[in-house]
Write a protein that binds this DNA or RNA. Sequence first.
RNA 1: GGGCAGUUAGCUCAGAGGGAGAGCGCUUCCUUGACACGGAAGAGGUCGUAGGUUCGAUUCCUAUACUGCCCA
Length: 877
Amino acid sequence: MPTKYDPKSVESKRYQFWLDNDLFKASEDQNSEPFCIVMPPPNVTGMLHMGHALDFTLQDILIRMKRMQGYDTLWLPGMDHAGIATQAKVEEKLRKEGINRHDLGREAFLEKTWAWKEHFASIIREQWSKMGFSIDYSRERFTMDEGLSRAVRKVFVDLYNKGLIYRGKYIINWDPVARTAISDIEVIYKEVKGALYHLRYPLSDGSGFIEVATTRPETMLGDTAVAVHPEDERYKDLIGKTITLPIAGREIPIIADDYVDPEFGSGAVKITPAHDPNDFEVGKRHNLPQILVMDESGKMNELASKYQGMDRFECRKQIIKDLEEAGYLIKIEEHVHSVGHSERSGAVVEPYLSTQWFVKMKPLAEKAIQLQKSEDKVRFVPERFEKLYVDWIENIRDWCISRQLWWGHRIPAWHCKNCGEITVSMEDPSSCSKCGSSNILQDEDVLDTWFSSALWPFSTMGWPEKTADLSRYYPNNVLVTGHDIIYPWVARMIFTALEFTGEKPFKDVIIHGLVRDAEGIKMSKSLGNGVDPLEVIDQYGADTMRFMISTGSTPGQDLRFRWERLESARNFINKIWNASRFVLMNLDDFGVNDIDLSGSLNTADQWILTRLQETINYVTHQLEEYHFNEAGKALYEFIWDEFCDWYIEFAKLSLYGDDSNAKKTTRSVLCYVLDRILRLLHPFMPFVTEEIWQNLPHEGKSIMIAKWPEFVERFQFPEAVEQMNLYMEVIRSVRNIRAEVNVPLSKKVNIFIRPDNEKTLNYMRRGEMWIRQQCNPENLIIGSDISISEKAMTAVVTGAEILLPLAGLIDIDQEVERLKKELKTLNAEVERVQKKLSNQEFINKAPAHVVEEERKKEKDYLEKREKVKARLAQLQS
RNA sequence: GGGCAGUUAGCUCAGAGGGAGAGCGCUUCCUUGACACGGAAGAGGUCGUAGGUUCGAUUCCUAUACUGCCCA
């Protein structure tokens, strides 16, 4: 075995080994409790990024632990067709080839898109395997699979029949670049420096003007009224009169509506019902015409007269110029306001009057709200995200689900060309359900991608069929996802599940943060600050990446990607690798049947076994609470600081000694503890743990299916822990003194230990071997009656004094300074403790064990202080 | 405007009602028979500010400042 762990030589081999042994597949063992996670499906738009790596790693950790705990685990993988995003990518690719999708036609375009999907699906599968994910490939799903499409259709048809899906002409968010409607949550509002244009609209009767303020002058061509507040004294007399719209020359009324804010601008606003959601509502209240002045690409249309064909922003400039020349422009003020941008294309969203399909949300949301008020609610981890979810669902608005795209689930609605009736059904109809005409055409639009994603937890299980998987693995146990998709996804899964399965889709929702770059900026393609998981794996190995990202932040908090942390994780793995090398190098022909812990365990054995039990309990508990960082930290500290730094060193004593029984026990403890460590680490770092485990004495085919460690009652030795703590304190003190006077370990010195009580004396005698081993003394003398006249360095530990006679090496002045400093800190401690203990309220009100601890501390500090004082006096005399 | 996070060692971050922690960096020493991706010993913080609750607050509460995110 090399001194440095080489992930490349291990990872692909081990993954193949797991696959060959079919270890990822759900066992379907009816005697085991099922545990299921359905993977949030990555988009087939491209490759996986660091956010996926984080999300999936957390899932794999849970799945691997549960599998080892004996659950029948199912981790179901899949991918999302990602309508707009994928179509945009394919169109972009075609554009580079000089092809327009309309030239190809719908069928041919979809064929190209399926090919794109296949291409990226295989890349994503490759990435899954590189990251070590234990997913059940036999159950992989895609949102546009036949079965899932059937589920989508079923949900659409049922909601339509229940009156919860409707079609209508409303203002929607229009993406003029992607040329499709998008939903409210796909709009990102950004503060933009714009302008407030004050315009002068002439009264038709020639009696003057009314001043209106607008941020969007180009829509004036679609104005159908000017509105003022009914109470606004300034304009009371004008209500009912008309103005003549500049440029357009149309005569439109001045109306009164509460919606107008008299404080804003001039207190009079232009009303453009076809281009603003508020104006749309005003228009409906006042029966105003709706004049759409733009086309689907954001260019002015034929109703914009001479501006026809001009881009909306270009038109804005031109109109202002024209208005100014005609004397209709009063002033332009700088104005910062928030402007909606498309999440997909980045284009400024155009509020646009259009006929679309909607889901009526209130009745669906109501069930979800009720659920959260019940005992059976979906548990969010961390808890604070529940409020976010509830607030959103309580204020939900209808969901625009139609998209003017080709890639996606086509809306199962047929329009009759004769009578106009819409036929919605599970099977493709051949005639109109009302007039029987066969002159029917399917709706051109497809559904919002999230419509199918919303069914993911059960559509992947075969719903609406009553499958065995559905009854066994649904509801899922856990959903792991980022806080950025609580609204578009988590919320929608919950209300759809409640409506269609009558159950919540999952029990727990674990929310993690985003992966940011080293400077804390969100990783994104456009900024080019993303880190490719495969590059990380190539440099450091998958285990390193997994450990770093899964333990790198507190639950729910964003994670800053730093290469130094990656190095530290890599070093940790290397440490485990080398500790294992040590164990393996000292086994000779020691086999799994030689492991025997029933014999006499020495103090170090007892100590490490006790600490192992505590670690097992702690790590298991933390993982079950989804505190990945805490579990990882506990393992790191136990392995590095206790197992490697101390136990392995102590073990050398018997391994290199002559006592064959002691040797056997030590080998047993080393094998046993390392084996348990590897099991606890396995969910975090599956590859290296499998590799080592296979080389260690072991039983079973793979560590993947080895039993998760459990607390063992008989391996609890509190006295051994107390003793080892004392020995470590002594050893550290001696090292400290040696460093202080520059006496390396290689140089033998006399060491005196003067315990001040019987118990400590006994402990010291029993621990002599460890102290000798670690301190390299010429002579080690332990006795209560030791007195030395030579110049010596001293240290105090609990219940004893350590003396190193180092005549000639000691700088007395320096030593006096050091002791004074120590005295000062001891004084401070004594003062603090005594202040506490002299407070009667503390004695009365603090818990007994706390008071007891403080008393112990006081005693310890006082004793130590006396020793330091005495020593100082001796040196200064 | 509303909500939520964060503010702790030079940097990045854990933590917990009762003696301030880690990683990286820094200083000194050590190539000792698992590991220099290592070992040993150190230096370094009035835990954003002001109040309050409590025997006790860096930890809980309130206010406030700054930073970030979400919603309108």
